[in-house]
């Protein structure tokens, strides 16, 4: 009987306006330096499927053509894309645990954050989830000029957030 070696632990890095879904338990999905962007994590503990999206802007209304080329740029097109990819990998909606990280306010020095992209990203995500019948399980969002890095362990679903020198499980 052949002995199957587990695959080596591997970090899969998700870039800006990108996403990844994995059903390999040893995989760890990671995205770096979230400011006003969101890191949206989904995990199905039964199917052993995890996914992560690094999304930049709230609404594709401002550039539908760009959204068509890369849906992961916008919350309203990227999040459905992430869910669909997770379903293709075997995840089921009613089992999906959804967590979100990021959405910080920007603005240099004492300057106000005029566009409030981070806040708009979080609001758009929450509206989308509520209208589609999904309750967010946990969030680490907002704050002033916070840079967050987020890790999702596909095997366990553990979400780890590193921000400004602190580290916490979400």
């Amino acid at each position: 009987m052949p002995i199957t070696q587990p695959p080596p632990a591997a970090d899969k890095v998700i870039g800006i306006a990108d996403m990844a879904v994995s059903d390999t338990s040893a995989d760890r999905l990671v995205t770096y330096a979230l400011g006003s962007c969101l890191g949206v994590c989904v995990h199905d503990p039964v199917a052993g499927v995890g996914g992560m999206l690094h999304v930049m802007l709230p609404s594709s209304d401002i550039d539908p053509q760009k959204a068509q080329r890369n849906p992961c740029m916008f919350v309203d097109t990227g999040v459905p894309e992430l869910f669909r990819a997770a379903y293709r990998a075997g995840a089921q909606k009613e089992r999906l645990v959804v967590k979100v990280v990021g959405g910080a306010a920007s603005g240099e020095g004492d300057q106000p954050d005029n566009f409030q992209v981070g806040k708009r990203n979080v609001l758009t995500l929450k509206k989308l989830l509520w209208k589609n019948g999904v309750i967010l399980r946990a969030e680490d969002v907002g704050g002033q000029r916070v840079s967050r890095t987020v890790f999702l362990q596909v095997g366990t679903g553990e979400v780890l957030v590193k921000a400004n020198g602190r580290e916490a499980t979400l």
Partner: peptide, 10 residues
């Protein structure tokens, strides 16, 4: 408006 109705207000 934001928390109950997901509407951005400024």
């Amino acid at each position: 408006l934001e928390q109950l109705a997901y509407l951005f207000a400024e």
